[in-house]
Amino acid sequence: MVYAVRVNGSLHKVEADGQTPLLWVLRDTLGLTGTKYGCGIAQCGACTVHVDGQPMRSCSLPIEFVGSAEVTTIEAIDDPIATAVQQAWVARDVPQCGFCQSGQVMSAVALLRAMPSPSDSDIDTAMSGNICRCATYNRIRAAIHDAAATLRGEAV
């Protein structure tokens, strides 16, 4: 089957089995390798992308269900929220091995869109689907608070 998917603002025609996870279409077919394979069963969140603005695990999203939705990957997030999150990540030196961080950033951006000033427990709730084996969780939490503060116009 040929599917037309909207990824990062442009339309791509992709020939694939309908059950092919969006993850592998992004990585193997479109060459967008910022989105990572970590577990393949929606346990770790390394493959998180935005589908119509909502965070989704692309390993568990068959291409046939994407339809006309707009898919955004780590390569193309560039609104003020995303910028604030990524700047906070760098300022705190959040990443260690860094492999999960695309997914962490995608989840963090989605969280701040839904909740501009999340509490610690809001962050725990929203981010518990993203595993980091290097356990950078405390810095992630701090960086999300920093980004939220920046977006509120406060100095970090």
């Binding site: 990524q86 990540w89 990443p95 961080q101």
Partner: peptide, 15 residues
């Protein structure tokens, strides 16, 4: 390496 690790541009073997 925090920047390339925060924007998905760092290349691992998988990539």
């Amino acid at each position: 390496d925090s920047q390339p690790k925060s924007n998905g541009s760092l290349i691992y073997t998988q990539d």
